[in-house]
Design a protein around this nucleic acid. Structure first.
Lengths: 217, 217
DNA sequence: ATCGAAATTATCGTATACAAAAATAATATG
DNA sequence: CATATTATTTTTGTATACGATAATTTCGAT
């Protein structure tokens, strides 16, 4: 945990965008933010640059920064991409995984089972991250791993939009087992397919539907 | 084109990393950069933040920024992800494209044909971008479009690594026609498959091979 | 009264100054 | 002579100051 003022501002604003306190289009005034976070304008500006870089804000030269909170539609879009990336990771892992990495994957999933036994959803969350990290590593593409990790982190804030928060742990675990099996047997197609669904159950069809309803937000 | 000092520094350093003038691991000293670009440290710091954001540099708190030039291996990895994203765009477009968008796509490809007739590879490059932009738009996922566009731009600097620079225009066009056909007939699988290959002919097998040779660059 | 131009104000972008932390050099001690 | 400890220097991170540009307001002319 960095003690920097800039990161404090960045995370603070990020948080407030995720929770909806800062609504889409709101101007991110440097002076006000500096005052609110009790820092000078310099770290505020650095934080804003990072926000722009991560897509959470838009900058108009000489005009300032504005909140770029993703609409419901955009969140769905992000999930759609996330499911693709997860699928790709699993598919590559199915071709490239080593015995040792497969072992690590099984161990990580055993951790998930433990979390279910304790009925500890927070613990499950962490163990689930470990599980997916194993796949990211085994996919043999560190760039892909980094990108997927970044998107996962970005979507984390919007998990509340995922309707099926509770009672999904057992199903998640079932999918894990299927994924492990697919990777172990080198079933590229299956590993891909299940991993996609693992991320977005309703799948792309849901988005198709949404597209025909209204184009914006 | 922004006249900002920060962007000047950003683009300058980006250029020098792409051309290899700034080698991997080189420390990006704020003072030297400020002197070299004849600006103060403030815009230099902003540029460095952006470089970190786009993955071209790594920042170690209280230690400074260091060039993060992608290795050959990483470039291959990026192409691998790029092919996946392009495939996804085409696949989604095959399901979602409208008559008008399909028309635009055909028009864009006609532009590519023109470029071949004139044997103008620079023109072909631009028209090819237009062609792919049509697919990005038709995929109906703006987040995906943005991400794919960003990666395309990032890889642009390393096109010199793509061996098959010359004499590929006709083959590229053949693939375009196949992609259009697949999208028009809604052949999701084919659109995906051809688009992937369109980006990275040698495909994933090449990378598989590389992985067994040596792990790190 | 309304529209337009000039003056004012506010805010962005940059430069400089300062404080804190780390790297380096110097000195002391075994 | 090597190592540890302290002093010096360098560099990062933050604050403040200043200039430039866009937004706003004021004022005058039609």
């Amino acid at each position: 945990m960095s003690n920097r003022a800039a990161t404090k501002v960045f995370q603070g604003v990020e948080e407030q965008i995720a929770t909806g306190q800062l609504k889409d289009g709101t101007k991110l005034d440097e002076a006000s933010l500096a005052e609110r976070f009790e820092v000078s304008r310099t770290p505020v500006r650095e934080a804003l640059l990072q926000l722009v870089g991560s897509g959470l804000a838009t900058q108009i030269p000489k005009r300032g920064c504005f909140v770029n909170a993703p609409s419901f539609r955009e969140v769905i879009e992000m999930f759609e991409v996330m499911s693709e990336l997860e699928g790709m990771c699993a598919r590559l892992a199915a071709r490239r995984i080593s015995d040792e990495q497969l072992n690590d994957l099984k161990t990580a999933n055993a951790g998930c089972e433990d979390a279910i036994r304790y009925n500890d959803s927070d613990l499950y969350y962490d163990r689930n991250v470990d599980f997916h990290e194993c796949i990211y590593f085994a996919c043999g593409n560190r760039f892909l791993a980094t990108e997927t990790r970044a998107l996962r982190r970005r979507l984390q804030s919007f998990r509340r939009l995922q309707l099926r928060a509770r009672g999904r742990m057992p199903q998640s675990l079932t999918e894990h087992i299927e994924i492990i099996d697919a990777i172990e047997t080198g079933d590229v197609y299956k590993a891909d397919e299940i991993s996609r669904r693992h991320v977005m159950i309703q799948g792309e069809r849901f988005n198709d539907l949404l597209l025909h309803m209204e184009y914006d937000q």
